[in-house]
Design a protein around this nucleic acid. Structure first.
Lengths: 253, 253
DNA sequence: AAATGGGATATTGTATCCAATCTACTCGAG
DNA sequence: CTCGAGTAGATTGGATACAATATCCCATTT
């Protein structure tokens, strides 16, 4: 019974090394696919902040392709919830309200704590050591505030813990929710320079999983996500308040 | 605080009446949008069964448009999980394995029972009477095996119960999961001519909601979904076994 | 001075056309 | 007779070109 790791199937440790060897044999990537990945990456990295209008011509020129693959990519990202289309007016990067961010994290905590619960009993020593490896890289990226790496590694850590549950369908959904939350978490990470309880919490969760303490692992995971959500809502709240005041001030000049 | 009903915002009772008046003023629908809806509808109705290859030329001719809007529609449906793309080989209607169907319903039961739990205390008498109206139409469609109506009404009933929870984000996700499950439930509905406990179960759930019995409502909802999932897995299992035997026999000739 | 209307401009939406790739079939060699 | 190479047809992927729509500015009017 093979476990599905939902597109995060690259082994995390040897990723940089294997990429060149894995990808070269299959240069069979369609331009639309590449455009989708490029745009998703840029949105997630915060290169295009919330509510940025996404001009098809500009994106096409930037990526060196025509508008057709851009449009198809935007459609896909729309369905992923990263952009919003307005007929004849173009697409903009989607923006979550505070309520939606709150809801997002509550939903995540519910689903992901359940995933851990299902996974723990099936988790092998190998799984744990893999998670440990990822966690090491994660902490480095976290401290260095390397937002690009951080997001990937955060997902890899979580998904490694969930993988033994063997729930590909649920994983795909959770991965999208992670995408959405990471957009804002990264922002917070950059501006707070890594002030967070995330590292300790991750270690605690991993320890509980390694000890096969199902209840504890699930509870810690829930707390971890709920806590991160609360913290993030506060952060975004003050950020937006500041931005609003700033725009008011500048409008007044 | 307005409740979001996630695109099912048409009031169900006056739908047929209001459609003509509501839609005519804004004929501003893009062809891509119409194509997306048309194709989604057809897949959900079972007009294109699982694994049907979706030829862009054929679809374009059928809808009387060029291939561009078709391709964009297919991209969107891909992100919704209804079709799968193979580079340079075209799109096919996606197919769920038995394990995935099982997982789908377990996930639904988890999320939806939680939604009911949150909703009950805020449910008004008006909400209940609306649900009652929908249920009436639902039962009629169910008995008549009008698959097209049935699916919509089933979702409307469920979403009406969940709406007071005020969880737009979760609702959007659940709506997609409903889409996936309905594809198979409809098949079952047609072939079993409405043999199901669904009607009684819906009434029971609504009664519990009306009585503001949170625990009972949530428990019944969970049972309803889990039960439907189990029944469906059995049904699809035998269906596929039969299909396989049939194809074996025909291959032997 | 404010509001309204018209037109220029920018941007998106769709169709047509060409290139790249896959599939299936034929033909020939072993 | 089987297997493989090669070629023809079909189909998708992508670019260019054109049409439809929205936005913005400015003139004109009240």
């Amino acid at each position: 019974m093979g476990r599905t790791v939902t597109s995060a199937s690259k082994t995390p440790a040897s990723r940089t090394a294997s990429d060149a060897m894995m990808v070269l044999p299959i240069t069979r990537q369609t331009v639309t696919h590449q455009a989708t990945e490029a745009l998703r990456e840029r949105i997630l990295r915060g290169m295009y902040p919330d509510d940025t209008p996404l001009r098809q011509d500009a994106l096409a020129a930037e990526l060196g392709v025509s508008r057709i693959p851009i449009r198809e990519a935007l459609r896909q990202l729309e369905a992923e919830g990263l952009v919003v289309f307005n007929p004849h007016r173009g697409a903009v990067v989607s923006s979550l309200s505070l309520d939606e961010i709150d809801e997002l994290f509550e939903l995540r905590s519910q689903i992901e704590s359940d995933l851990v619960r299902r996974a723990v009993s099936r988790t092998t020593a190998e799984d744990v050591s893999r998670a440990k490896e990822i966690l090491k890289a994660y902490e480095a990226a976290f401290r260095a505030a390397e937002v690009a790496e951080w997001g990937k590694l955060n997902w890899e850590f979580h998904s490694t813990l969930y993988a033994p549950a063997d729930r590909p369908f649920t994983m795909a959904i959770i991965q999208r929710l992670h995408q959405q939350s990471d957009r804002y978490l990264r922002m917070q990470l950059v501006l707070t320079h890594g002030q967070s309880r995330a590292i300790d919490e991750h270690r605690g969760i991993l320890a509980a999983v390694a000890a096969h303490d199902t209840k504890l692992a699930a509870a810690l995971m829930r707390q971890h996500i709920v806590g991160a959500g609360r913290q993030l809502v506060r952060f975004v709240s003050t950020e937006r308040q500041a931005a609003k005041n700033g725009s008011l001030k500048s409008r007044r000049t």
